[in-house]
Design a protein around this nucleic acid. Structure first.
Lengths: 339, 339
DNA sequence: TTGTAGGCGTTATCAA
DNA sequence: TTGATAACGCCTACAA
């Protein structure tokens, strides 16, 4: 390995001169500077980033941990966080293989976790005494025992409320909710489910059940762990079977909604003429289909930026906001018809 | 930050005693050892991995670069590589945001690139003089000007040959090839396309075109960059339109084949009773559908392991094999019928 | 069995 | 304007 000492020798100067020349701080005579650059070039010298890191106790590397970034939402979140991190001079990496030992010795300045339940697990695994800046994304009803882990929340409960309000405003009275989970018995109660229940049970009364398109039976084994798109297609079929007479469907998320769109297209059921569809998430992909999917946007960009900047606040020693939240907002497309 | 010096002071010993006690090398008296452990505990001391890295010039971190790991094949490749890396004491990270400056100062021991054309780009971007161990995966006809970058190839040309031989063995005479690209005009000629052409043109003569189900027209804008599954569904429709009388279809890859399966299921066309389907890739997900998809496996596991171990050969200074290749093999399921 | 000292590759400080 | 020198935190001969 070539060090600044080799360069110094070749250029006939001292090591500190090389240092100064390389990073533009301090004074170096012009001719010496040139000699140094020449030596650097000839020797193919490049600074060892490890030494720098040791000096300023920073790696400028961040990591994102999640069990999967293989669905559109997390993929987009990760990509946007990567961009923000890069803007601030950091590189964001993704890893999925959590090993306590390796994580404790990772050369990373901090870590972002995909959601609050995973963050809780991570916290337990790492233990109290281990310190590493961590931030988590969350989606309503954040877990309570998150110690020293700030979260950046977008409330999916609000998202559903907002979606329902919008559909009503568009003249829809009978609105179904479609999800890939077991609406009534899912151990981890999704805020989205709760929101729909709270809003619509009083309206529908005993018939509430008819307006829930869920996957309690789950006959066909999923071909992938959580294939929202495919589940959405099946959801479309189940919606037709249930025949509840709804004029609009609000979907668990966008990818699920895209699956529904696709399935309805195959069945020659027109959206939004025959049925209105509203997604939740606001992923980019909703723009690339016909009709352009209307959705309640979860503000992926804001959340991504806030996760990164909060993490950098911790790392760079600024004041940290432990509770961050963003409001979902309506992102209109062409998949909802005004009645 | 707490250093081993603080611990030494508190435990009433020297810094080197702390070192020895911490990593079990050399001698430390029992009582001192305990005092040291106690001090470590009380102070919440933990070694700075940066110092270690500086000493032994290793970070034990690897990275995988690719434009997307969001399809089943690369996702599986990445996950398997992660596992192998972990077995060997390294952590594998993924990143997608290539910045020359950042990559040059990354705290990583080496890098794996998703395929040879991306590797070529990376090589050009980093330049001759910059040294970092790099390995690339490739899939037949590896790019020629890969300098000092070993590749781990699985030949998809062979895979198609193997698939065709198998289908013939099963009594199929009329075999179609389905792809999401433009079979005849795709600028980057896929070895898979070439293999099918070489094998079947002599057989079909002028009618060859009829047996190619491709996407030259590409009317509908893809909802995602390369959504193999969805393209497979459209492919099924196109196959029916073309009505070439084939009894079997060999697909560009498994995810595409899964899309076809799904679409045929919706149309009440039975696989393999009415039509036989053969995929290429051998991804795990093919097991979770009905019927279990038959496929020519690209040996993802072997390729993943070889990528990692070749990279570690470079990093740890062993002899490196620059040309590695694995043979595809047939992985039988239930989607091909014996005629 | 212990502690001192030198080195890993840098950069910042300070005296020359 | 320059070049020793002392850190950064750790490890390991080697001397005691």
């Amino acid at each position: 390995m070539i060090t600044r000492e080799d360069v110094a020798k070749r250029a006939g100067v001292s090591v500190s001169a090389v240092s100064r020349a390389m990073n533009g701080r301090g004074y170096v005579a012009k001719d010496k500077k040139e000699a140094i650059y020449k030596a650097v070039e000839e020797l193919g010298y490049r600074p060892n980033p490890l030494s720098n890191s040791l000096k300023n106790r920073q790696t400028y590397q961040l990591c994102f941990f999640g069990s999967d970034i293989y669905n559109s939402f997390y993929k987009e979140l990760f990509n946007k966080m990567s961009d923000y991190a890069m803007d601030r001079g950091y590189t964001l990496f993704y890893f999925s293989n959590f090993s306590v030992d390796r994580v404790k010795t990772m050369l990373m300045d901090g870590m972002i976790v995909e959601n609050d339940s995973v963050a809780e697990e991570v916290q337990a695994l790492l233990g109290e005494s281990f310190y590493m800046p961590i931030v988590t994304a969350s989606y309503g009803v954040p877990v309570k025992n998150l110690k020293r882990i700030p979260y950046v929340d977008v409330d999916t409960y609000d998202a559903v409320e907002l979606g329902l309000a919008y559909l009503k405003e568009m003249g829809h009275k009978k609105i179904a909710f479609a999800t890939l989970y077991d609406f009534f018995h899912d151990s981890r109660l999704h805020p989205r489910h709760v929101a729909f229940g709270n809003q619509m049970k009083p309206v529908y009364g005993k018939q509430f059940r008819d307006y829930v398109i869920d996957n309690a039976r789950n006959t066909r084994p999923a071909f992938a762990r959580e294939n929202f798109f495919e589940e959405g297609m099946s959801g479309a079929d189940r919606f037709l079977e249930q025949n509840c007479g709804a004029t609009a469907i609000i979907c668990f998320n966008d990818e699920f909604a895209l699956g529904m769109l696709r399935r309805f297209e195959q069945l020659n059921i027109r959206v939004p003429e025959d049925i209105s569809i509203l997604g939740i998430d606001g992923i980019e992909n909703r723009k690339y289909v016909t009709p352009f999917l209307s959705s309640v946007s979860l503000n992926i960009g804001e959340q991504a930026e806030c996760c990164v900047s909060t993490l950098l606040d911790m790392i760079e020693g600024r004041k940290v906001n432990y509770f961050n939240s963003f409001k979902p907002y309506l992102s209109e497309g062409n998949s909802v018809k005004k009645l």
